[in-house]
Amino acid sequence: MPVNQYVVFEIEDREFAVDIERVKTIEKVTEITRVPGTQDFVMGVINLRGDVIPVIDTRKRMDLGDRDFDSESRIIIMNVDDMEAGITADSATEVIGIERDLIDSNLDFSGDRDDGFIKGVARLQERIIVILDLEKLLRLA
């Protein structure tokens, strides 16, 4: 059974995952410079070793309520469609392999507020891990 590797992170005690192939690095939160004239879920830009990288506020993007950064907070730098962007997380917990069979991508999420960004849901024993659709998450429109 094919197993894909995912980076798992937490927001509001819920577990989310993104395909590890898309993850460039995981960074601690550094100073974020606000960029005027952008949508409110664009937090701003950070300096990632000489490159200027935009950061998306995942909580705002998915309507999950506000929370200040703490020492566990992370910015996960992604590579999507040839552009780099970071998404915020309360914490980045682990990398796990998930069998493709365990991912249900035909769920009806209607009613759920963050349904648009879900690619599928993996059930691992007690855990439910939401696999995010990065293309949608990072789409500005």
Partner: peptide, 23 residues
């Protein structure tokens, strides 16, 4: 450059990194 993701923002021509590492 601000990159493709943030291109075309009014008033902003780009970014630079200051001595203290801030953008």
């Amino acid at each position: 450059p601000l990159g493709k993701f943030l291109s075309g923002i009014r008033y902003i021509a780009g970014a630079t990194i200051l001595g203290d590492g801030r953008v």
